[in-house]
Amino acid sequence: MSFRSLFKSLLFGVPIGVTFLDSVGYVARVEGISMQPVLNPESKNTDYVFLSRWAVSDYQINRGDIISLVSPKDPNQKIIKRVVALEGDVVSTLGYKSKYVRVPEGHCWVEGDHTGHTLDSNSFGPVSLGLISAKALCIVWPPERWQSLETKLPESRKPISIAI
């Protein structure tokens, strides 16, 4: 009898949990050094961030947001980067095939904060907004690193011209 009720609560509980994770958000571990110094400032410890799915449900993102997206090179991999430019902006690239790029319609330009140690739009070009999966809001673990993540862009990486 108790086995049956356990099975029943699993059957109804799992979809509710999955829907919550899909529409509200979830916590994920950040790997790698590409977002230093904001995330993983020392390479030995890893940060856990809260990723909000709610915030990107209508694909509204701002320059400077930290977002998680499906890697254009490998659909099984998720990457975390900062949005540098939105559609229509002109951005000066760092080592991309052309020096200046106008971000096409429905795309954005993402970069890691750790210039030179990151695989980002400078290697794979502008990414489609449809690949964005969530927006990082705050660091939740370890406790001494509790903080919310700010929307900011270094002065040197601001787009050259901003679409109106």
Partner: peptide
């Protein structure tokens, strides 16, 4: 990731995710 050549698929439009 088991897609093959010849499959008809639905996808988000690359230029307009909606």
């Amino acid at each position: 990731q088991r897609l093959r050549r010849g499959d008809i698929v639905t996808a988000k439009c690359p230029t307009d995710p909606k």
